[in-house]
Structure formats: structure tokens, C-alpha cells
């Protein structure tokens, strides 16, 4: 079961998890990651975020990422849901959920997907704070996190 969604509305983690499993009993492990909006980044007082993306390319990148994870860790289910539009601190931004036979593969696959998503999927964040609006810059730590998944 593969779910890829770009949406403005929130998501229901419980519903996504049960759709991932679909009653199967061979999937012994499920790991999900939820990213949320913080009220600080490089500077304090972030009041809101606006997320922009490249429609068409975003879905294609996430779809390929999901397929790669399924093949590499033999996943039985994968879901990637990313929100766009204006979000407030505390709002959920992204959900990555995977299900497979064993926990180690599930943890790794989930981390792989979110690490790669952060450096490959065409999303951009703009922060709104008391000091004005600012486009969020890339983080070296995100690039390194993504690069360590390169298969040698």
C-alpha cells in the first residue's frame, strides 16, 4: 500500500497507519515520523510558515522515494503526506509512515525517506515573524544526513 499526498489540510495519523497495514498480520513493525512547525528556527518569534512546492515534480519525487524505500527495505506499506500553504507553530507539516516485517528495517526506511525528502523534494518554507518574512535557508546537517544514505 503506497500513499503519496500533498495537501493543505491536516492528517489523521491513526487512519493512515491502519490503511498502511490493511489488516495484514505479516507486518511486524510500523514506524511513523511526524514533523511539526516550531516557534523558533534561526531566530525566535516565528508566528507562521508558508510552504510552497512545485506541483507535479513534488509528487514525482516523493513517489520515486517511496518506491526506492520499498525496494531497499522490503516494505509492505509506505505513506508520505506533506502539507502546503500557511501553517502555525504546533501544526503538523509532514507524515512519513512505513510498515514491514522487522523493526530495524522500519526505523531505517522511515529515516531514509524523511532525510531524502528534506533535500530532494521541491518544498520551500517562508517564515513569518515579528521581524518580517524570511525564506528558510538550507542546512548543511540536512545535506549530510541525506548523503549518508548513498549506496556505495
Amino acid at each position: 500500500m503506497k500513499t503519496i499526498a500533498i495537501q493543505t489540510e491536516g492528517f489523521d495519523l491513526g487512519a493512515v497507519e491502519s490503511s498502511l497495514i490493511q489488516g495484514r498480520s505479516d507486518l511486524g513493525a510500523m514506524v511513523s515520523f511526524v514533523g511539526r512547525v516550531r516557534d523558533f528556527s534561526d531566530r525566535p518569534g516565528v508566528r507562521a510558515l508558508t510552504l510552497e512546492h512545485y506541483p507535479g515534480m513534488t509528487e514525482a519525487v516523493l513517489d520515486a522515494l517511496a518506491d526506492e524505500a520499498v525496494a531497499r527495505w522490503r516494505l509492505g506499506g509506505v505513506a508520505i503526506i506533506h502539507r502546503v500553504g500557511r501553517l502555525s507553530p504546533g501544526d503538523e507539516i509532514v507524515l512519513v509512515a512505513v510498515a514491514c516485517a522487522h523493526r530495524k528495517a522500519a526505523f531505517e526506511a522511515c529515516e531514509f525517506i524523511i532525510d531524502r525528502l528534506k533535500t530532494q523534494a521541491p518544498f520551500w518554507k517562508k517564515e513569518h515573524s515579528d521581524e518580517g518574512d524570511r525564506w528558510v535557508g538550507e542546512r548543511m546537517s540536512d545535506r549530510w544526513a541525506s548523503e549518508r544514505w548513498e549506496e556505495s
Partner: peptide, 26 residues
């Protein structure tokens, strides 16, 4: 055409090319 590309990639009429800053989703 909605896939990351290098500068020496060859173009054909009707292609869509996009330029953007490093991505910051997630």
C-alpha cells in the same frame, strides 16, 4: 521536465525548465 537536472542537459521545444533555491521541506 520536473526532474533534477544538470546544466549540460539537452533541451527540446516544449520542455519545462525550473530554477529554484535549495529545498527546505519536511
Amino acid at each position: 521536465n520536473r526532474r533534477m537536472s544538470k546544466l549540460d542537459a539537452s533541451l527540446s521545444p516544449g520542455d519545462e525548465i525550473a530554477f529554484f533555491p535549495p529545498v527546505t521541506g519536511g
